[in-house]
Computed example of a mutant assay.
Amino acid sequence: MNEFEYDREQRAAQTASRGGLPTGSGLPSGGVESSAPVAGIVKPLPPEWFVPHETNAEMRWDTLRESCTGFHVPTERFFVRNHTSTPVIDPDTWRLTVTGDGLRGPAVRFGLAELRRLPVTSFSSAVECAGNGRSFFATQQGHGVPGTPWALGGIGVASWRGVRLAEVLRVAGLRPEAVDVMPVGLDPDYVTSDGRNLGHVRRPLPIGKALDDVLLAYEMNGEPLTPDHGAPVRLVVPGWVGIAWIKWVGTIEVAAEPLHSPWNTEFYRMFGPDYPREGGAPLAGQVVKSAFELARGAELAVGECHRLHGRSWSGAATIRQVEVSTDGGRGWQPARLLDRPDAGTWTRWSFDWRPAYPGPYTLLARAGDQEGNTQPRRSPNNREGYLFDAVVLHPVIVV
């Protein structure tokens, strides 16, 4: 892709369709480079760290290499995905209510101190918005979609600490007949553009996943959760789309029959010509992606060796390999993996490149995981722009 083609696709993306989404869905209100604060987000959002999108804040990959070379993203740098706004909840008065006909007895309530007395579990995991990469449906594939125009910064890896959901359900008295578990957030009610009040954000999990590796986390990166990231307690659902990671959990419904909410019926399903009329199954696992830690359109000196860095991840399995192309995809070479691959997180990598001639170049990075999933050249189009997994075109200029 040359500079003209890239600029043309950027203009096409700016004029793509943006209708049909509820309020709070993150439609852009202006240029994505705006440094205006995001209403409803508590923490500071320096423009050198974040790209604001209405109720959301996207992490800037181009500054990650300069100020965050570690495996985990610092909490202050972590992206924010809000459907409405961040509530500030007193941890001393907060209570978690576990209720429903999937329990042997009446509802059970837990305070934060009671959760902390239960067996502790810690692990690292990536949380990623299902729409991460959405903007590339328009800029690379000519398929305009509504919703938050994420590039690739709607993801972060953190160290989480808390109690397994399975342990809380055990203490609450789980019945063997239970089939679904629905955490409910304490954020403000979600109201659509046509005035429908859908209530708190909530989404059911099948009991198999709930009893497997799901965490009720009260710490992030070694510190208590902050308001924007779910304090006092949030769900951590390794490998699954971010909507499953309910923040500010106040209630967990346990049911002996399937549960439903707008977030697994109307939203977060695949719609379009290639899917059933009623939509595909509710989104669960994430797909394979790669991102350069480099500004789009960056200038690099000709004849010098440049160590390119990036990160690749998959919701299904550990990363097996990463390849880089410096000629727009005609040839590929292996990148050097810098981490021991770990399922549910990302793998950092590097690639040395000495460009011989000045001019525009298109860099590409593609990853494959241990389950055989690889990044295609084109991602299947869908109405809402979910799960973009294609290789992303990354333009640079050699001078």
Results as ranks from 00 to 15, higher is better:
residue 72 H to Q: 15
residue 19 G to C: 13
residue 236 V to R: 14
residue 279 G to P: 07
residue 43 K to I: 02
residue 254 V to M: 13
residue 238 P to R: 06
residue 204 P to W: 08
residue 324 V to C: 09
residue 300 L to P: 12
residue 323 E to D: 05
residue 234 R to K: 12
residue 392 V to Y: 05
residue 381 N to F: 14
residue 199 G to S: 06
residue 105 G to D: 14
residue 131 G to A: 09
residue 162 G to Q: 03
residue 168 V to H: 06
residue 18 R to K: 13
residue 220 M to D: 09
residue 192 T to N: 05
residue 277 R to G: 15
residue 33 E to R: 05
residue 270 M to H: 09
residue 216 L to K: 13
residue 327 D to V: 00
residue 73 V to A: 11
residue 10 Q to G: 11
residue 233 V to R: 03
residue 82 N to S: 03
residue 272 G to Q: 06
residue 185 G to K: 09
residue 202 R to C: 11
residue 223 E to F: 14
residue 154 G to M: 02
residue 300 L to Y: 00
residue 187 D to C: 05
residue 55 T to A: 08
residue 2 N to I: 13
residue 187 D to E: 10
residue 347 T to G: 07
residue 359 G to S: 10
residue 239 G to D: 09
residue 212 D to S: 11
residue 269 R to E: 13
residue 171 V to H: 12
residue 244 A to E: 06
residue 294 L to C: 04
residue 157 V to K: 04
residue 383 R to N: 06
residue 213 D to Q: 15
residue 138 A to L: 03
residue 122 S to K: 10
residue 88 V to Q: 11
residue 66 E to D: 15
residue 387 L to V: 15
residue 271 F to I: 02
residue 168 V to A: 02
residue 297 G to K: 14
residue 274 D to E: 13
residue 73 V to M: 13
residue 257 E to Q: 09
residue 122 S to P: 01
residue 307 R to W: 05
residue 166 A to F: 04
residue 9 E to P: 11
residue 70 G to R: 04
residue 199 G to R: 03
residue 120 V to P: 06
residue 214 V to L: 03
residue 318 T to F: 12
residue 7 D to R: 15
residue 86 T to V: 02
residue 381 N to W: 11
residue 18 R to T: 10
residue 374 T to V: 14
residue 205 L to S: 14
residue 240 W to V: 12
residue 290 S to R: 12
